[in-house]
């Protein structure tokens, strides 16, 4: 399998298109016959990462790179950043507004579920500048 990279723009607070990058990637991975359990893990990570940019971040980018050994998902935004990453990683920690909680967001499970579903995850964030999340998945099926 040759290497393939696809990128999508994510707009901050754009709930209308939220999730579309993850859905497009899911279809692409299916066409590439990636293992279905792996596709589901990538779907959880993509969705949660995408929603975080929409809800908490600034405008951003969602990139996936697929090659024989591994799949790398990079989700970055130029938003407010995360002042305390360890705290943000805690299960249940959320700064979501009441309005967003009523919509079923803000469970504080996004980052923990991304960490659980990725083989490796790295977060870098600079308050006032933005956030970068990299998730790596080992492509064992190939």
């Amino acid at each position: 399998m040759s290497s393939l990279k696809k990128c999508f723009n994510i707009r901050s607070r754009d709930f209308i298109h939220a999730g579309e990058a993850s859905i497009t990637v899911q279809q692409l991975l299916k066409q590439m016959r990636i293992d279905s359990a792996l596709i589901r893990r990538i779907a959880v990570c993509g969705y949660e990462g995408e929603m975080n940019v929409v809800m908490h971040g600034g405008d951003g980018r969602f990139c996936i790179e697929i090659n024989t050994e591994r799949i790398v998902l990079d989700i970055s935004d130029e938003g407010a950043g995360i002042p305390d990453i360890a705290r943000a990683m805690e299960k249940g920690y959320s700064t979501a507004s009441d309005a967003h909680r009523e919509m079923g967001f803000g469970a504080g499970m996004g980052l923990p579920n991304m960490e659980k579903n990725a083989d490796e995850m790295f977060i870098e964030s600079v308050p006032g500048c933005g956030t970068k999340v990299r998730m790596i998945f080992f492509n064992r099926s190939t």
């Binding site: 939220a18 999730g19 969705y47 929603m51 919509m103 079923g104 469970a107 579920n113």
Partner: peptide
């Protein structure tokens, strides 16, 4: 009704019972 919980735990191919009627349920 918590989207992260559903995204993590709903069985593939299931019927999902929820009170959420906004458009983001479709992506899930």
């Amino acid at each position: 009704d918590l989207l992260s919980e559903v995204m993590a735990n709903a069985p593939i191919g299931c019927v999902w019972l929820t009170i959420q009627g906004h458009q983001n349920i479709i992506a899930v």
